[in-house]
Design a protein around this nucleic acid. Structure first.
Lengths: 341, 341
DNA sequence: AATATGTCTGTAATCGATTACATTGGTGAT
DNA sequence: ATCACCAATGTAATCGATTACAGACATATT
């Protein structure tokens, strides 16, 4: 039962002071080559590992980043997390994950993660934060160590990484129009969500630009999740006057919608063209393969992490708020086609 | 710019010593009611939050659990993570996430998370850990703070939570047999994986029990992911003698397989019955809705976290290795049907 | 030769909480 | 009145690293 080796032990083996050990490890250039090598050797011999808690206490850093998700269970985030991880890990940062609802359920506040030293940076994926929570962030001394991703909060100047939602929605709708559709419906995201609004507004705008009337009954509430696609499908199935094409705010909605249609023998794309948004992995392997707007989730995660880290490095130079907008690409597959008649 | 308030400040406000503050917060029963209230009041007034690094240093605990995934990007894990989180969060534990490959890429070792005090428990989802890494875990003083989930490592006695893979596979294959199929194929998981083996062996065993010959060319290598389903589909499409039913080691394989079949006008379930494993969210909304074996991913995550925590609480009483096997359920949908002829 | 400059290393204070041990005062038993 | 005991609190050591400051020594400058 070897007990944990501490910096003192290494110092003894290397025949130098603890200060030198510390310097040799964290700032090698200030010690002589000879001692540096001796220290490294002693570290190897003893199997020394710095105690994070002690370091964190002294340096007032945690080397951990909090990733705040609105919903951990949503598979949409998994690739994004991977992107974040690929940047954080090589830079020596740990990734802490939390869910907005869980934090308040536990009687905690988001800002506590800063105050009690659990994290020294945040990537926030929830643009629907409670007003008070948002204010806390804005007023926090650590406001420069916060990056929003995917979603954002209007009228704040946190840096953020997001997809080109408006352009993407315009392209999606235009694709349907280009195919000859004039009766176009939209299944939205959840109410009050910035992405929902961006995509919905672009939908309306694009139709108007092409002098296509926007029919209110063809704008159906969704919430990005599968079940809302099914519900929307049922409503459409029951309509006397049906659209011929549908722009869904997410791929999940699109998939569930198509599945429900198929049960009623409404075939996609022959009877109904459907386009999604996200390009989840399964989109390509759906039946029919889903036409959609691709979001680069891996890249989005990477970018968010990179911006955060670079901000944290040179916090003096507070670059005026970065908003990185990632390209989205129209991926035409088999769920869209010209209208029948 | 209010600087962070420390326990000293609270002590001053409450008119007691720091020891009393600490006790009032972490072990309220040992202080008198009066002081307890005074302390709570002072905490509220000052907005005090304990500094985690200091506490961690002194108590030699981190109150963080490492969740080790083989692949963060795999959506299969997202609901499991959610299950874990719902247990950890109310108990005051943070959830740290890492990927096996990233750790070694960063020149770190899994065991470092214990040694340097980043985590005081682990939930490991990777049964394919490197031998040396596994040995480190077995020999670690913290071996009682490790739980395996989904996958496991043979011949170790770590507690683990897993689905009834063998029973599930048997049930899946039997479902196909019950439908009248005699020409049954299997797409496996990745080589060397414990789940792959369990499901494959059960496949073979079940066929043999029903005196159905196992044809080697109908056992195709997969890796749980979508693309391997597509590849397997192509191979089957090219076969002169085709099976009439396929048991896939994962839903992702099944979906991609079906999608590829449909491009060649092989219809599921009419021309080919397909059953998956997992019951990912999308299975229900696939076209055709996927028949599959449901794994309770949320419950699995919860159980894993619960076992870990209870082990960590009373580490004296080292219960003989728990292996919790979670039920799996056959969910019959539309991708399976009797053979045509 | 004296001084300045720079490089390297060591000593000891420090980060902020927890907790072993000591102290106080009160209660009840004798 | 004396003592034992208990409950409540305080004092100060402690966790293990980092780092401000100082000191030692070597080299360069005048």
């Amino acid at each position: 039962m070897k007990k944990s080796v501490k910096i003192q032990d290494v110092a003894k083996v290397a025949g130098v002071s603890t200060a030198t050990i510390s310097r040799a490890l964290s700032n090698p250039s200030v010690v002589s080559k000879a001692t540096r090598e001796a220290v490294l050797e002693a570290v190897k011999v003893t199997g020394y590992r710095v105690n994070r808690a002690a370091r964190n206490l002294r340096t007032r850093k945690s080397n951990a980043i909090l990733v705040l998700l609105p919903d951990i269970g949503n598979p949409f985030f998994s690739q994004i997390l991977q992107g974040i991880q690929t940047v954080l890990s090589p830079n020596g940062f740990s990734m802490l994950i939390a869910e907005t609802a869980q934090i308040s359920a536990a009687g905690e506040h988001l800002i506590d993660y800063f105050n009690d030293g659990r994290a020294d940076g945040m990537i926030v994926f929830d643009g629907g934060l409670d007003r008070n929570v948002a204010r806390d962030l804005i007023e926090a001394p650590q406001r420069n160590q916060i990056v929003f991703a995917c979603e954002w909060i209007d009228n704040t100047d946190f840096p953020s990484v997001r997809s080109a939602n408006r352009r993407g929605a315009v392209e999606a709708v235009r694709h349907l129009i280009d195919l000859g559709h004039k009766r176009i419906a939209h299944i939205t995201g959840p109410k009050g969500n910035v992405l929902t609004d961006a995509r919905h507004e672009s939908f309306v705008k694009t139709l108007e630009e092409h002098n296509i009337p926007v029919r209110d009954e063809w704008v159906l509430d969704g919430d990005f999740h599968l079940n809302s696609g099914r519900i929307a499908a049922r409503k459409i199935i029951d309509m006397d006057e049906k659209p011929t094409a549908i722009f869904c705010a997410s791929d999940q909605i699109a998939c569930a919608l198509i599945a429900e249609f198929s049960k009623s023998n409404i075939n996609v794309p022959e009877d109904m063209a459907v386009i999604g948004f996200d390009d989840i992995e399964l989109a390509e392997h759906f039946v029919p393969a889903l036409t959609t707007m691709r979001q680069d989730r891996l890249g989005l995660g990477r970018q968010a992490a990179q911006i955060l880290l670079s901000r944290m490095m040179n916090d003096s130079e507070i670059s005026n708020s970065d908003v990185i907008v990632m390209d989205v690409d129209l991926v035409v597959r088999d769920s869209t086609a010209p209208p029948k008649n």
